[in-house]
Amino acid sequence: MATSHTGRAEHLITVNGEQRRVTLRPADTLLYILRDELGLTGAKPGCENGDCGACTVLVDGVPMKSCLLLAIEFATPEEPAAGAVPRHIETVESLDETEVQRQFLDHWAFQCGYCTSGFLMLAEGLRRQRPGASPGEVVDWLRSNICRCTSYAEIIQAVRGTLERERSAPPPV
C-alpha cells in the first residue's frame, strides 16, 4: 500500500454494496470522500460539525453524520482477516423507490431539497432500527437534523406514514 508524505494512501471502502478503491488522508472526513472522491454528492455539507444532519448516511444501518466520521475508519485491508465484516456505508443514492421516498413526495416534505438526503437517511435508519417507534420517538430522532424551508409537520407526517405503512403491510412471502 503506497503512502505519501501527507499520509495519503489507497484504501478499500464499501459503499452502497460496492467495494470502492479511494485515496485518502487520515484526516479526510467520510463526507469529503463520498462527495469528492466517489462523486456521491447526495450527502450535503451544511455545517461540518454535526449540527444540521444534511450529511446523514447509514453505517451498518444506523444513521450517522458523515461530517463527523473519518473515512479511514471504514477502510478495509486488501486481504481482510478471517471473519472480519467490512462496515457498510449507505447513501441516499442507494434508495430506489422506497416507501420513505414515496412518503416524502406525497407529503411535500421538502422544498429546496438540500436537507432532504439527510432526512431520508435518518428516516430510513429509523424504519430499520425502530419500526415500532412511537410518534414521540419519531420526533426525537428527527430533532438531529435541520430543515429551513418546511414546517417540519410535513417531514414528521412522511416518516410516521412510512412506519404505519410498514406495519400494515403484509409480511414478505
Binding site: R35, D36, L40, T41, G42, A43, K44, P45, T91, V92, E93, L95, D96, Q101, F104, L105, W108, F110, G113, Y114, T116, S117, L120
Partner: peptide, 22 residues
C-alpha cells in the same frame, strides 16, 4: 402539481452548486 425536480430531490440526484466541480 409536484415540483418538476421532486424525483431528483429524493434520490440525491438533484445538483447544487458545490456538487458540480470540474
Amino acid at each position: 402539481v409536484a415540483r418538476k425536480e421532486a424525483p431528483n430531490k429524493v434520490t440525491g440526484r438533484a445538483r447544487y452548486c458545490a456538487d458540480i466541480t470540474p
